[in-house]
């Protein structure tokens, strides 16, 4: 028979050994994991501008090659930092925490957001990172606009844990291609910011003139679709001061 003291000592020692083992492993593997996450983020940024199928081994080099400028702007659309040379993955723009900055925005505090520029045969493509909330957790992505800073060139979305087959469909090409199959614009004819709405029931419900500002929502994924809708609206709106200055 084991005494209570033995049981407590046994449990304590076991747990301490397990904890030591796990924290050592976590610390040692962290650089590798962070590199993987950075590579995934770069792939997503490039994919939104239709630069796809890049081998992971050369992703960091390709990213630095394709991205001609990595900017940080503030809430007034003023460029705070611009990086055109060197390792952009270590620059300020690439390492901005979108969640934190949008939280600051929601609370009326000064914030900073990243923008990437890619050169496409002499024309600049602007890529705006996005961040928002889905049904079960965060959703994020990138939207690329053409030189007129109005027409969508491409989008990528990703999510932490949306329901497979329903909300998770936002990260499939079937959903993303809607933004490029027909021309979509974020400003209307009067140059008013309208964003791109994710419309429950489909864009066909909208009047003809509004259809270039909308895409179909996902059946059974209404809350995630609304999340994408709000994310586009909220984040793109924060970039409007910058966009206005460029025009």
């Amino acid at each position: 028979m084991y005494s209570n003291g033995y049981i407590f000592r046994y449990a304590a020692i076991l747990v301490i050994i397990a904890a030591a083992l796990l924290s050592t492993a976590a610390m040692m593997l962290k650089p590798f994991q962070e590199r993987n996450m950075a590579i995934e983020k770069m792939g997503s940024i490039l994919a939104s501008a239709n630069v796809k199928n890049i081998d992971k081994e050369v992703m960091i080099d390709r990213f630095n090659e394709f991205v001609t400028e990595a900017l940080v702007i503030n809430q007034d659309g003023k460029v705070i930092e611009s990086l055109t040379e060197g390792e952009k993955e270590n620059g300020k723009a690439f390492n901005i925490n979108m969640k934190e900055q949008l939280y600051r925005k929601a609370n009326g505090i000064d914030y900073e957001l990243p923008i990437y520029k890619i050169d496409d045969k002499g024309k600049t493509i602007y890529i705006f990172p996005l961040y928002g909330t889905g049904l079960w957790g965060p959703i994020w992505g990138n939207i690329a606009l053409s030189e007129d800073l109005n027409t969508v060139v491409g989008v990528t979305f990703d999510h932490k844990g949306e329901t497979p087959g329903l909300g998770a469909e936002i990260a499939t090409s079937a959903f993303e291609d809607q933004f490029t199959d027909t021309v979509k614009k974020i400003f209307d004819d009067n140059n008013q910011f309208t964003s791109i709405a994710v419309v429950k029931g489909g864009v066909k419900k909208l009047p003809e003139s509004q259809r270039i500002h909308g895409v179909d929502a996902i059946s059974g994924g209404t809350i995630t679709s609304n999340g994408v809708n709000d994310m586009l609206k909220n984040v793109l709106e924060s970039y409007v001061p910058y966009i206005e200055k460029q025009k």
Binding site: Y2, I7, Y10, A18, L22, A25, L29, N36
Partner: peptide, 27 residues
């Protein structure tokens, strides 16, 4: 292993291994 807490001990061992495997896969 004290029989009274044997299931907990087993779980701790399994959970430790699973987290290790998960971390290695992620890396």
């Amino acid at each position: 292993i004290p029989p009274r807490i044997r299931i907990i001990v087993q779980l701790v061992v399994i959970a430790t291994m699973v987290i290790l495997v998960d971390q290695v896969l992620k890396a």
